[in-house]
């Protein structure tokens, strides 16, 4: 009996692993396949100007090229970049992106009135807008002063032999292959990328950042 239970647990782990589309792609049932499913977060010094930082978030991972033309940002979902610049893992600044009528509107960075799971938008915050780039079109970049903004479909920058990892977790393989096989090759995501002066994010050595998707109630 115990052997049976162990076997069942192993099968359950395998079944679960099929849904574990990493980095954050499709990782939880409540948001799987919805406009709020985050794929990845990137934060790096601008390759073009070392005084600038680039923040990028991707959502709706694993889009096939055929599905990408019809994919769109959910107009009821905000993509919120959170910035903690004093090391307590609580956001001191937010950058909020919403999508309406073919445009992305980015508010901030600004200090939110309240922190946590529920957000409102301070419409008096710095507003940067850009037309959402269509599939197959050249990237449209919105600018406001020193802030640059892009939203639209991109190749998923993430790479991982996720299928083999799933096989290892499920017990049907014991190691990765060399070379491995990128489970994300040939797939797209919807991306928001922004670039802004580091001085708008903090004055210390570093920041902590994370991205949240929040649905309009």
């Amino acid at each position: 009996m115990k052997k049976k239970i162990t076997l069942f647990a192993g099968m359950l782990a395998l079944a679960t692993s099929i849904y574990l589309m990493a980095a954050d792609h499709n990782e939880a049932q409540a948001i799987m396949g919805t406009g709020s499913d985050i794929a990845d977060l990137y934060a790096f010094q601008s390759p073009a100007n070392s005084n600038y930082m680039v923040l990028g978030a991707t959502v709706q991972g694993l889009l096939s090229p055929a599905a990408t033309a019809n994919a769109s940002f959910d107009e009821n979902v905000m993509i919120e970049f959170n910035i903690d610049n004093n090391g307590d893992a609580v956001e001191d600044l937010v950058i909020q992106c919403i999508f309406e009528n073919g445009q992305v509107s980015m508010y901030g960075p600004y200090a939110p009135a309240t922190t946590g799971l529920n957000s409102t938008i301070d419409k008096t915050a710095t507003l940067t807008q850009a037309d959402i780039t269509s599939y197959g079109a050249n990237a449209t970049i919105g600018r406001n002063g020193n802030i640059s903004l892009f939203a639209g479909p991109r190749d998923d920058p993430f790479f991982f032999d996720f299928n083999q990892f799933g096989a290892i977790l499920g017990g049907s393989a014991t190691s990765f292959n060399n070379p491995g096989d990128d489970s994300f090759k040939g797939t797209n995501v919807l991306a928001v990328v922004l670039e802004l002066p580091k001085s708008m994010l903090g004055s210390g050595e570093s920041i902590n950042t994370w991205v949240e998707t929040k649905r309009k109630q």
Binding site: D24, D37, T120, F158, K214, Q217
Partner: peptide
């Protein structure tokens, strides 16, 4: 009244929830 947006997904580092949190 400003619209309220309620959190559905969160991410900092890659694969943290995916790998380290078990159970849906």
């Amino acid at each position: 009244v400003p619209a309220v947006y309620a959190q559905e997904d969160q991410m900092g580092r890659p694969a943290i929830n995916t790998v380290f949190v078990t159970g849906m």
